[in-house]
Computed example of a mutant assay.
Amino acid sequence: MSATDSPERSRPAQRQVEIAEHVLQHGSVSATELAEMFHVSLMTIHRDLDELERQGVVRKFRGGVSAQPSSVFESNVSFRLRAAREEKLALARQARALIEPGMAVMLDDSTTTLEVARLLEDDAGPLTVITNFLETIKLLSGVRGVRLLALGGEYYPTHDSFLGVPCVEAIEALRVDLLFASTSAVSGGYAYHQEQEIVLVKRAMIRAAQRSVLMVDHTKLGRAALHRLAPLREFDLVITDAKAPEETLSEMREHGVRYDIA
């Protein structure tokens, strides 16, 4: 990850997202290194780190910072909404081409599939969309031509979505043409996620879909999380972006995984 000193990058909220991503990728880093990377003062970096520590994303120690074992960043929707926006949009455009009028399409609670929903706002045609993500529900609630089914369950504010047994049971009563899903980590031919509640819902979604598509930008490749979600070969297609490392793509080919580059 690289930093620039453009006005957009210098905004504290965006800078904190990038700091969190960098710390998660490297495990720990010094405050001095971060100050040099983002072209800001050491005092500014410490303010950023104080805010990230307050939110439970990182843990400060003398002279530096490390990632919290819980990887709150990967769960917190406010962070995920700002991360890898360009890559997510590229994946969404690729995914949108797979959607045909009359389909029943399920979208999980990822900010990646939220970008797919944004592309349905205009001229979606007759379409049924099923989701447990409140942001997607609000986005599509007034879109002409979209029949919207909201999956219930227990509301989790951190994810801004509905999870738990009621959500799984609602999914199990459905059969959809196409599922678009994302996850926090991919490695060794498997998709992973750090939270079991999310894993259970995503597995139910895979079972409910005739075809399933996994959308993962390059920042999620070559990483692992606590819970194994599913083998990549269970997805009919994996969509990633042009920055995906060749090592990971080669690994996918070895496991017989079909993938497209957005």
Rank of each mutant, 00 (worst) to 15 (best):
H39F: 11
E135R: 00
T158Q: 12
G256W: 05
L120P: 08
V29A: 13
L148I: 07
R258Y: 03
E254Y: 11
D122I: 04
L200C: 11
V146M: 06
P69Q: 10
P166C: 14
R203D: 14
L24C: 09
I45N: 09
I19A: 11
A20E: 01
D236Y: 03
A191K: 08
P231L: 05
S70D: 15
Q68W: 07
M106T: 09
R207A: 07
T128P: 00
L127F: 04
E169F: 02
S187Q: 11
S66F: 00
E251A: 14
G188R: 13
E247I: 08
F73L: 05
L107A: 12
P101I: 07
V65A: 14
N132L: 07
G153V: 10
R144F: 01
D48I: 01
A104S: 14
S28F: 05
S182V: 01
L49T: 03
A224R: 14
D122R: 14
D260G: 02
V216A: 15
G189S: 12
V65H: 09
H159M: 02
V168R: 14
L214V: 04
M43A: 13
Y155V: 10
F38T: 02
L148W: 05
A20N: 01
Q25G: 08
A84T: 04
E51N: 09
R59K: 13
H218G: 03
D5T: 08
P7E: 15
E254S: 14
M252V: 03
A181S: 15
T158S: 07
E254A: 15
V213N: 07
Q55H: 10
L34G: 08
H255F: 13
A204P: 02
D50K: 09
R82K: 08
F162G: 07
G27H: 13
E121I: 02
Y259C: 10
A242Q: 14
Q25P: 01
V238P: 01
V168S: 10
L200S: 15
E100V: 05
A230I: 01
P101S: 12
P12D: 13
T113F: 01
V57L: 10
E21A: 11
H46W: 10
R144C: 00
M1S: 15
M43V: 08
V116Q: 10
F38G: 05
A3W: 12
L34T: 11
I45Y: 06
G153R: 06
Y155C: 05
L229H: 10
L232M: 10
R144Y: 05
A173F: 00
L237P: 08
E154R: 13
L174K: 02
M215F: 05
P166S: 14
S70Y: 06
E154C: 03
E74I: 03
T131L: 00
A242K: 15
L107G: 12
E53R: 04
A262E: 11
G256F: 06
I19Q: 08
L114M: 11
V72F: 09
L127Y: 12
V65P: 06
K220N: 09
T4F: 04
A244H: 03
D122K: 09
G152D: 11
H39D: 12
A244T: 04
R85I: 07
Y259D: 13
G152V: 07
A230G: 05
E197I: 06
F73W: 03
G153F: 04
L127R: 14
F73A: 09
L149K: 12
L221G: 06
V199L: 12
Q94C: 15
K60L: 06
H26P: 05
F38K: 11
V72W: 05
V105F: 09
E246D: 11
